[in-house]
Design a protein around this nucleic acid. Sequence first.
RNA 1: GGCGGUGUAGCUCAGACGGUUAGAGCAUCCGGCUCAUACCCGGAGUGCCAGGGUUCGAAUCCCCGCACCGCCA
Length: 508
Amino acid sequence: MDNSFYITTPIYYVNDVPHIGHAYTTCAADVLARYYRLRGYRVLFSTGTDEHGQKIEKAAWDLGISPQELVDKMVVRFQDLWEKMNISYDEFIRTTDPRHIKVVQDFFRLLDERGYIYLGDYEGWYCVPCETFWPESQLDERLACPDCGRPLEKLKEESYFFALSRFQEPLLQYLESHPDFIMPESRYREIESFIRRGLKDQSISRVGLEWGIPVPSHPRHTLYVWFDALINYLTAAGWGSSPDKFSTFWPSTYHLVGKDILRFHAVLWPGMLMAASLPLPQRIFAHGWWTVEGEKMSKSRGNVVDPYLMIDRYGVDRFRYFLMREVSFGLDGDFSEKALVERSNADLSDNFGNFVHRTLGMVWRYKKGVARKPSPYQDEEWEKLLEEVKEGFHYHMERFAFSQALEQVWRLVHFANRYIEREAPWKLHKEGKEKELEDLLYRLLDNARLLSFFLYPFMPDTALRLRELLGLSPNLEGENWGEALQWSLGPEVYSVREAQPLFPRIVE
RNA sequence: GGCGGUGUAGCUCAGACGGUUAGAGCAUCCGGCUCAUACCCGGAGUGCCAGGGUUCGAAUCCCCGCACCGCCA
């Protein structure tokens, strides 16, 4: 448990077109997965798709194909995107996968045996054309459908319920003793006050919906989407199928969710787990939303950001970097191509890329591409900075504060650029101080080596390209991070490739 | 309406336990360097929503007002 890390994204509704929001969560999860792998943890990273529900059923009907055929086609859009984005997931859960269906039904039976499930009546305002129930709080006095504006009718139908209300006190107690359970803190407070106000039992099945997981022994009912979807986290961890895997990863579970679905993850889900006597996740982190050039992103506005397009236009690492660097994880952020270009030019081209480029350039110009390790190899100022950066980096990564972690890394970049200016290698060369010059160049190269580790979780391609330029092994995850990040543990000799810009500036 | 949060430089934000001249990045202006991707380095700034209170001392605690935001199955 100490040495394992299980990170999840929500499973995405397969009917959605993948957009920047999906890319964001998944990218963050990937950064964490890579980071913990570097640190030598056993990592399980799961994502997937939610493939049940009325909308799918209807869309398939309209197309004259089966729902399964439809989702089989749709799921590819997500899988393709993750490949393009270098997402290193271990598990991809589709809710239509038989192994998931079995887990869900087993879980249902378990809660049923334990007396947390009962049959009752669900009553609510229903929009017949939209086939959707609406909570009273979202309606005004006209009692019209918020979606289509047509009148709603009160409808009562038989439904299974999960006795969530019985976990109100246990949940509150758990929150109290686990202040990091829900992050950021403002969300913790929201959830706390939500629970305090009183929990109702949760309807978890529908009748008359074909495209869902049937309730065991009562297949006229299918399980309500959240009950089905949340359990994907157990499926991915091997609950009921791989006891070893499950006991390794389950206690160290970290859920990443958008703020819109926090409540299901922070209330319903822990309630379900308590009912099953399973440990609760370590943390549920709700991140913010992206607006687009100051406006809310929506289909009707036509401003939905297409990740495919951004990657084609700017490359995967610029996109990943921007997502992780531009805003504090947990807060809302604003996306615009202008901001992406500015961020990328300033940080990646001018600061980082140019540092590498000028360094390699000098190693070739002055030393034919080779620099030996100075002996003794010391630099008090630089070593001290490295220690600070490491500490800050870990601190922020463990709190999922990606932007702040990157800020730490850039202290090394900035320091190196300043160092070059201060030590003026070109002057050393003119003055014939060749030993000093070589020592200096080695330091700069070794700084680039250190950067390859820090940057790897965020920009895996770039980290590997950098290492190739430095003549180092690409096998980053095989290195011992603790040792690799030591000052003075670089190679005896750097024999580098010829300089080429890692991030050519983007000029409009 | 109920509960909670936020309001700090032109912009985006940092600012444990209240304590010396309030920080960073971007943008602006000035200067320097030339190894480099019109890059890099240095310097200059201007600021704590309004009002009241607690305190020797508050961006930091309390009250009130205003503005914005979130949650309320």
